[in-house]
Amino acid sequence: MSRMGPAFERSKLGGLIFLFGLFLALFPPGGLMGPEAAASESLRATLSWAIPGALGLFIAASGAPIYYVSNLPRLILGWILSLYSLSVMIVEWNPNTGMLATTVSSAAGVLVTVLIYLYSIRLTESMGQGDGVTKPLEDDEIEHVSKILLANLDEGGLQ
């Protein structure tokens, strides 16, 4: 999308920000407003099943069949964790009709923002043509590339 390319120098802040957010979720600071305290409490209740659930699904996915060969111990361990998480979730989740409208309203807000974001990415991609037409190879570069190709063809028995 808007950040394609061989990004070996990608920012390493993601992991730190994730850990910082997780720390704040588990140990919220004092002085929270009413809705903030409720959100923090709900987040902690959600994490109690979401962390083992995510871990279980990840392990189960890693043990799932690839070309019809599965890793049974991983699959079983993953599903044990996932089923435990499902049982905790069912106990804690109390859906009611009142929350339907609020949830739909919030989801609509997220959807609108994501659509605008995707459109802005499309706009970014349509802007500019990067570095333009690539220059042809110099003579010494042609010689260097030819040597590499010929050496590889010789090794593969394709003389």
């Binding site: 950040r3 920012s11 920000i17 807000g109 997220v110 923002t113």
Partner: peptide
């Protein structure tokens, strides 16, 4: 509020994943 939350998440994501080829 969800729009604001999503916008904040996107900004944090862009800061977290920034690299030299990014056009943010």
């Amino acid at each position: 509020g969800s729009m604001a939350l999503s916008a904040i998440v996107i900004v944090i994501h862009m800061i977290s994943a920034f690299h030299p080829y990014h056009r943010p």
